[in-house]
């Protein structure tokens, strides 16, 4: 069941929208903001609220990297694997993160602090290689810089 607050916030988005399905992304982000991720049950609730089928909403939800269909850690690290970051050393950045955190793509550390996800491009080619942690961008990365950033988030 969606909470009263969630409903209110979604309804607010609905003002001025052509129809309910057109604000599906906003609705997913609103609910994910409160719950951390979109469970199957949550997905069905939102779909019903927007007069969509779960199939239609899940089609959208699974397309976007920033909508989580499984629980994630307290912080999500998005590692850019776009062409520029790849040229500028994306692979070594990823290897380092993997080793420091002891997890692979899509996994969450045992203490629940980090989830590691690839992302196609975060538009920071001028500071490649780059990553994002939650909504903060970190560019011009080196192994040392990564250790520092991780320490801040522990």
């Amino acid at each position: 069941m969606l909470s009263e607050d969630e409903r209110m916030e979604i309804l607010k988005e609905l003002e001025g929208a052509e129809d309910a399905p057109s604000i599906a992304m906003e609705a997913l982000r609103i609910v994910q903001g409160r719950r951390g991720y979109i469970s199957d049950e949550t997905l069905c609730d939102i779909a019903a609220f927007l007069n969509m089928t779960p199939h239609e909403l899940d089609s959208l939800a699974t397309f976007y990297s920033f909508i989580f269909r499984k629980p994630v850690g307290r912080h999500v690290i998005y590692v850019c694997d776009g062409v520029t970051c790849w040229v500028m050393g994306h692979e070594s950045i990823f290897e380092h993160l993997k080793q420091r955190l002891g997890i692979n793509w899509g996994e969450t550390t045992e203490d629940g602090s980090f989830t590691l996800l690839p992302v196609s491009c975060i538009g920071a080619c001028d500071h490649a290689p780059a990553i994002m942690i939650d909504s903060t961008l970190y560019g011009d990365l080196s192994k040392e810089k990564i250790d520092e950033i991780l320490k801040e988030h522990r």
């Binding site: 199957d40 089928t53 199939h55 899940d58 089609s59 699974t62 976007y64």
Partner: peptide, 19 residues
């Protein structure tokens, strides 16, 4: 029909149902 759709992105695109 509203219960068949496409899921995912890139090279793991899936055609089927939500469940």
């Amino acid at each position: 029909g509203r219960d068949l759709d496409v899921f995912g992105i890139h090279d793991s695109v899936y055609f089927g149902r939500h469940e």
